[in-house]
Design a protein around this nucleic acid. Structure first.
Lengths: 340, 340
DNA sequence: TTGAAAGCGCTAACAA
DNA sequence: TTGTTAGCGCTTTCAA
């Protein structure tokens, strides 16, 4: 190693090519017609010196930056990272770069991440709020400066528009399916994730409204709660049921604990998930689940950010999910759909 | 909504407070002693106007930026995102901000991500290469400009130092454990992930050297391969074995497929994973696995980046993993260690 | 078509 | 202790 190379500036390219730096700028950006001879000379010099544009200088001068920031509560939730991946692809296509930052489930870090992105003059900000109440200040601060979209967790009364899955439709799809596959006399159980997040709350409420007769257990969005919920069902002496969960991770834990206890799935229990991205493939038998339309949601976010009109009041975009039938489904189409 | 607010500059704060902009700069950064009266006045003005520093201007002037970039092949691998989370925490403590970008498993995108980070004058770059051969150019280009560390996948002959898990030690821990728990006469099978990635190759080679008698099957780093491998074992008429896998996701798929086929784990088969972060908790019975020391590796990366000395040749830092005993372990300490 | 000059917002060297 | 000035690297007037 011979040490680090200092970065080459336009000035140096200009000197090398014997032109002014504005000519270099124009040659590289192609912003203006110019003699082919000079352009080639400039491009060759840039190449020879290994010139790469300093985006800081450009952004400072242009007063804009084609970067969109994404702040996640953490990187460990597979649904969040699936969104990050998809959002990155959609933005890239539209000429934006996506930079992602984790709030580590900490409000202070989230706030600093917001102001750091704002201080970098990013074009827009997408936030999955860490906390549905306390994240509001940071969200509104961002919203005052750049187009800001909140995703997946809805912060009450925030100025920022919200994009998410239409949980009511998702639950309706599930309920229709549940009525088809549940044998007469067997109970239906809903294993939720509390009421702390808007997604969990909306799913739970929609379910309770449509199937008031169902037993409802509440926990959190993780595998361990699925394990515990399964044991709780068994402890209550339930030997067979259709179990609707509010996330695939819960379904996964529940299903494997039931199997470990010797229960047949889907023979004795039918387990239904929610999300359909990330971990849904892990389950065996394949999970029947509601698939969140991650791509459509990403496009909705792009739309809000590019067609941004600050005069329009903050809106809500709900994108409809669809049902993915797994091995728990008894219909022929279920197995066919999974292609196993 | 009343539209977006233009960002307030130091100049405006200075005018508001009736001082010069350098005084504002000093008051806000606390870089120099100054009269308390003026400082308070400046801080009040900044507060009143809602001033937030423009990091672009600062970075351009200071010629440095306390940001470290991380480029992942994709966001869907739980081990990568676990690293991202931990690395973010370690860097934050050290005064750096971590910004993450996904290469979408595409070399072109990876290259653009590298030059974009370089163009933003980041302090250092951490890359999990998308491809162990083809990523070299991008890695070396970065290395010429800023401290650059490659992680998890080792690119041959790259200038950038490498930080990773000591796979040989991990495999030794596994082999020792396997010899303890495998009943006499039962086979040992290694379910690997090919030779395309250095991690997979190193684990496979270490295992083959230590247990040449074992059957080796090769696939890829995903759950589906675990499912297929399990069926292959059963098709070969193997009714019981200790199965060592090269990643937890493979172990997870293998274990659930064996259970679905009615085999007892750990009664008939013992399944051992590798990674110990992200999805290891999903398994039931709990997986015995090698835990990659994500925090120690993150600190090693920080060390390389801060103590960077370009004159020193690129090095390799291997951090030792440890064994986490799951329910497959027959020793009492196994269950105790997991605390279930 | 090209060059000179200004200036984006900030900080640091230098003067007062 | 505070202000003046210069300049980080770039783009974009404005003039030639």
């Amino acid at each position: 190693m011979d040490g680090r190379t200092r970065s080459v500036t336009m000035r140096e390219v200009a000197q090398h090519a014997g032109v002014s730096s504005s000519t270099v700028s124009r040659a590289l950006s192609g912003s203006r017609a110019m003699s082919a001879e000079i352009r080639d000379r400039v491009l060759r010099s840039a190449e020879a010196l290994g010139y790469e544009v300093n985006l800081l200088g450009r952004a400072l001068r242009q007063q804009r930056l084609d970067v969109v920031g994404l702040i996640l509560p953490d990187f460990s939730n597979p649904f969040f990272t699936a969104l990050a991946e998809q959002l990155g692809a959609v933005f890239r296509e539209a000429g934006f770069e996506l930079l992602v930052s984790s709030a580590g489930n900490d409000l202070g870090i989230e706030r600093r991440a917001v102001s750091s992105f704002l201080g970098r003059q990013i074009h827009a900000l997408v936030v999955i709020p860490s906390d549905e109440a306390a994240s509001r200040a940071a969200l509104d601060a961002a919203s005052r400066r750049v187009p800001t979209v909140q995703f997946d967790r809805r912060v009450a009364d925030s100025d920022a528009p919200y994009v998410g899955c239409d949980n009511r439709i998702g639950v309706e799809l599930i309920v229709r399916h549940v009525r088809e596959v549940t044998p007469p006399g067997e109970p239906v159980v809903f294993v939720g994730a509390g009421t702390a997040s808007s997604s969990a709350r909306e799913r739970r409420e929609a379910f309770a409204a449509l199937m008031p007769e169902a037993l409802i257990l509440d926990g959190s969005f993780d595998v361990a709660w699925g394990h515990r919920a399964a044991r709780e069902l068994l402890d209550r002496g339930i030997a067979g049921a259709t179990v609707v969960t509010s996330a695939d991770v819960i379904a996964l834990g529940l299903q494997s604990e039931l199997q470990a206890a010797g229960r047949r799935v889907p023979g004795d229990f039918r387990v239904i998930g929610f999300d359909g991205v990330g971990v849904a493939d892990y389950a065996l038998p394949a999970l029947t689940t509601v698939r969140q339309p991650v791509e459509a949601m990403s496009r909705a976010i792009l739309e809000l950010i590019t067609r941004d009109d600050p005069a329009t009041p903050a809106g809500t975009v709900l994108v409809a999910p669809d049902l993915v039938l797994g091995d728990s489904s008894r219909t022929a189409s279920g197995r066919a759909a999974r292609g196993r």
